[in-house]
């Protein structure tokens, strides 16, 4: 794989909404992607530096994302996390992004942009 895409490029190209506090996204690289709505699967399969795509928007995703040190969580289908979840993400340095696209679509677009599994 070529040089990994950085978050800035991904956010721009896919028109993602940033839900957490802004920061220098160009300094963060996405080394791969992992899609699952099951926390146990994500724990088992997602690696540090990956983008994690999920429809889940509840509090538990923040803890899992922080633990795995994923590059960012992309919440699909405009699922809306509540303020407590966003606050907790900011506290723990987890980036939450959002898109109206469903999992299948966003996976496809990322794949075609060159974000493959590492």
């Amino acid at each position: 794989m070529d040089k990994p895409m950085n978050l800035q490029q991904i956010i721009e190209q896919l028109d993602l909404t940033v839900l957490t506090e802004p920061r220098d996204f160009s300094a963060i690289e996405a080394t791969g992607g992992y899609t699952s709505d099951l926390l146990s699967c994500v724990m088992a399969g997602a690696k540090s530096g990956y983008l994690w795509m999920t429809l889940q928007a509840h509090m538990n995703i923040v803890a899992v994302a922080a633990l795995l040190e994923v590059a960012a969580v992309v919440i699909t289908e405009n699922a809306q996390p509540d303020q407590a979840t966003i606050d907790k993400a900011n506290q723990q340095g987890v980036i939450l992004l959002s898109t109206p696209c469903p999992n299948f679509e966003i996976d496809g677009r990322l794949w075609e942009m060159g974000v493959k599994k590492a």
Binding site: D37, L38, L39, S40, L55, Q56, A57, H58, N60, A79, Q80, D82
Partner: peptide, 17 residues
């Protein structure tokens, strides 16, 4: 939408979202 009292176990079965 999104309000749920389901346990994590039920969520892991694909329900309770």
């Amino acid at each position: 939408p999104g309000y749920s009292t389901a346990t994590e176990q039920v969520r892991e079965m694909g329900f309770g979202a």
